[in-house]
Design a protein around this nucleic acid. Sequence first.
DNA 1: TATGAATGAGGGTTCATTCAT
DNA 2: CATGAATGAACCCTCATTCAT
Lengths: 216, 216, 216, 216
Amino acid sequence: MKTFRASARARNFPRMSDRPLPENREARRRAILESAVRVFAENGFFAARIRDIAAGAGVAEGTIYLYFDGKDDLLLTAFREKVAEFCASVRDVLSSSLPFQERLSRFVAHQFESIEADPPLATVLLLESRQSSKFYGGAVRDVLRAYAQAIDELLASGQHSGELRPDADVPLARRMLIGALEEIELEWLLGDRTRPLVAMAPRVAATFFRGLATVG
Amino acid sequence: MKTFRASARARNFPRMSDRPLPENREARRRAILESAVRVFAENGFFAARIRDIAAGAGVAEGTIYLYFDGKDDLLLTAFREKVAEFCASVRDVLSSSLPFQERLSRFVAHQFESIEADPPLATVLLLESRQSSKFYGGAVRDVLRAYAQAIDELLASGQHSGELRPDADVPLARRMLIGALEEIELEWLLGDRTRPLVAMAPRVAATFFRGLATVG
Amino acid sequence: MKTFRASARARNFPRMSDRPLPENREARRRAILESAVRVFAENGFFAARIRDIAAGAGVAEGTIYLYFDGKDDLLLTAFREKVAEFCASVRDVLSSSLPFQERLSRFVAHQFESIEADPPLATVLLLESRQSSKFYGGAVRDVLRAYAQAIDELLASGQHSGELRPDADVPLARRMLIGALEEIELEWLLGDRTRPLVAMAPRVAATFFRGLATVG
Amino acid sequence: MKTFRASARARNFPRMSDRPLPENREARRRAILESAVRVFAENGFFAARIRDIAAGAGVAEGTIYLYFDGKDDLLLTAFREKVAEFCASVRDVLSSSLPFQERLSRFVAHQFESIEADPPLATVLLLESRQSSKFYGGAVRDVLRAYAQAIDELLASGQHSGELRPDADVPLARRMLIGALEEIELEWLLGDRTRPLVAMAPRVAATFFRGLATVG
DNA sequence: TATGAATGAGGGTTCATTCAT
DNA sequence: CATGAATGAACCCTCATTCAT
């Protein structure tokens, strides 16, 4: 999430009723959201307290409710925005015309880099995604679907180019890939983080790929 | 006014482990634990209420505290006991002398069957394991380590027999396998569960295996 | 309470419906009451748990309710019986024909000895008497009244014999004496109890009797 | 995603002691404390319910925890503050250069007046002091020590001036005095309070000072 | 707009008491 | 009589959310 660009909201052009938030407002919003992510990462969503989020953002508790609908909304928004940003950045990586295995490897590396770039955010996304997916349902799942779609496209392009078995079950492979990456990332996050995660990308990609490659 | 025999005091506080629990006691304990698993699965650990667990088990709230130390202990115990049971059953599957791919396939099928056999339990184990691993630390991680070990042995035996690349990174492959399976299981659990999960086992195993197989 | 005699209840002669309790029953009753006193002394009445009282007496929790009406009754009974026993023993001391100051001194010494003889009981009587007096009202106050009466008689006899000012306000003096003794006893009980309490009796009696004034 | 300034965090959590509490805040604090004292006096500390204290103060239950750390803290604070206030006022009385007996008498009268001025507070201090002293230990005992010290000084000054026996045991006399006063006060508090307590002060002081003996 | 004091519903847990065995 | 497992009412405290300033 190293490569996040200004969020979609900020890019809007001025309109009467929805002009870009004053610089300060936007900055404050971001501060709150980031504080929330940090506190969620440290304590888990339920044990996280609004008070601590407010303190971490340097605002009063009540202020949070001027920017977000409540605690749930903080988690949901973090999901929505951060995963969306991540998806956008993924598309850049996937859009090159390199060989499939290379693009796969870069995708994995890119994801690992994002994890390393912002561990608190990664912790929240990985630890809470399952719960959120179940208990917040729709909203979160839509976001994750977009992420899935991006990967499906990567895999499908590999099939198109003939680098991937034509009979591969793309959604299945995508789920296996996502799961495999999450497990590795999580172990890194919960561990001592001494060895760079990104260094494992090639081996992970290779392990995954050889299973799908058209074998001679 | 003479003093009481110390022995009188020691005679109290019977230990559960002194002798196997009377049939009824054990049945009640199981009822509580299963109710807890159900309620955890439906609401998530934090949102689950002791009152509902008690109601589900047909006991009074206070009764729960005769069998468990509290809410945390219910989750922890579910983890400990259920994963241990699962590990034991896994070892049976893994101990046969079939070819590696066959044993892998059976392992996957076995795990999928376990998921299908008790979806509430599976939901809890999958949804809460990450949180628990982070916030309850040690106890949960020990249990999961045993599970990891069993898989490592499966993979190592494949290497021994020459069916698996000698240069395969077993711990990495194990993590990828675990992650891949969890993702698939979770999608099934959170979905409509119309198609049997176990039907996917061969394809999952194959997808995973071909990447590790010594290729001609 | 060194000199307690068999309680009034035990002295009863056999009657059809109320014959002396079988030795075992009486012993059990005493064990419970003494355990209660100990637990009350250690934790205070409210923090004391029936479970601990039962454990200390070597009986099951339910058994306590075969001998007493409940927790309140345990405290009340302890008061009633122990203070009554103490009052009885006091009368022996006070009935001698020694000079007043000597009898006063012996009374103080006797009370101090009782404290030293059974600190847990003394702790309960002193710590809980005020609370009990207020919240259990009548029953406790009756008991304490008997104690007061005994002292009033001591003082009145001093007046009769001319050793005590005829204009002394006996009830007032009695209250002052009781309060003074309680304070000293309590300090001893809550302190390290290294020095024998009884050693202070003569000085306490003298101070009370002669006052602090430099006398001509 | 840059990190928050640590200062933002430090800006929060204002300390009560930074500046005097706003008028309203202090008033509310007092209201809570006084309600607590009333409820403690009526029910005793343990049986007192936070709900009732809140209702009596006209605040919500949660509000109490903005001002105090909990139920214990309410009792402790009442002790600390009220006894300290009392000690301060005592020093004024004791600092005059009147004859000893006169100062003693005024001290007693002053204490009796304090009791009469706020019976609920007096009830709490007298009923709970023993329990508190035992179970809350240090904090309460420190407060009471200050009170003891003030009396010791009174008595010592009497010795200095020659009005008091040089061989009097000051700490012992102080304990007797404290105990005597407490007993009288308590009887008044638990009784019907028809006759003014303060009217007894001279007689109490005299009895304590001159003793009961018929003087030659 | 920002604040943070106030709110009060809600939940985990304890423990005196009961009663089937 | 004795037991001790079961009960469930009661309570302290937390914390997300509101709203007067």
